[in-house]
Amino acid sequence: MRPAFSVIFLTTLIGAGQGLFIALYMAELGALLGLWTMPPGLYFALGCVLSLAFLAAGLLASFFHLGRPERAWRSAAMWRTSWLSREVIALPAFMAAVAAFGLAHYLRGAASLTLALGAAGLTLALLLFICTGMIYACIQFLQEWHTPLTVINYTLFGCASGFLLGTAWAAAQAPALIGVSALWTAGFTLCALLTRLASLARNARIRPKSTIQTAIGVKHPRIAQKSEGFMGGSFNTREFFHARSFAWLRGVKWTFLLLVFPLPLALLAAGAAYASWPLLAAAFALQYLGLLAERWYFFAQARHPQNLYYQAIS
């Protein structure tokens, strides 16, 4: 697939926003459970604003993906069948929950209220992760995507980046939480590393179910396309090909593996040790860049069977 930048930004931004919210909610839950002292209301309220900023930025990015953004409202219609539709519903619902949760904290609402709103937010965040992940995972013939790992990875990346952001946020607003937050971050990041490595390993071994033989229905071991029917390109040659070399792809893979996992973890350790929010913010920034690369790679690695039909001009 050709990586779609608006979608890459959408998924990475809202993922971080979702993760951050979960981190905030965990902070409240832990505090209520007495694991640590309750951070100040502003930590939550401004944290929610931060989360919302990410979510809104993601939403904005998504508009750039649309040919007819003015009709975006229509996209909620098909929630019964379309994960995209569901995402379109879940995202604003989640944003509303985040806003409510933040507001409740800002207004020093009762714990039961914030707890309930947070629980709703958490549920919606998880739902949103699922919806977003399923948008990709549900397309069965995009075999690289058609696995629970797609949803899991996406969720873990969102949590990892969100918690990393949360750690930096804690460093600024609630230093008591740095340690535990860093631990959670590291945990999510390591889990993400494991599941992402699993998906890389899986994808490396995928034998495409569709072949040129099934594509045109001719059973012969040697088939080569000579003409795709046009010469100046088409939507089909633009949308589904990354048009990059293998070396470039490999470069991107190593880049994201470095940027998403070891480098931020190292910075995380340092930032947590020195309780330095700039270091932690840098860790987040690095990881975010890495996640952009990861999403790019996620797209690029997916081999769309339609490409079997678009291989040669003459």
Binding site: L66, A72, S75, L84, I139, P305, Y310
Partner: peptide, 14 residues
């Protein structure tokens, strides 16, 4: 149609 292209991703036949 909002031109989100999602259906085209979901068509294996291009």
């Amino acid at each position: 149609c909002i031109g989100c292209k999602y259906c085209s991703w979901a068509c294996p036949y291009g």
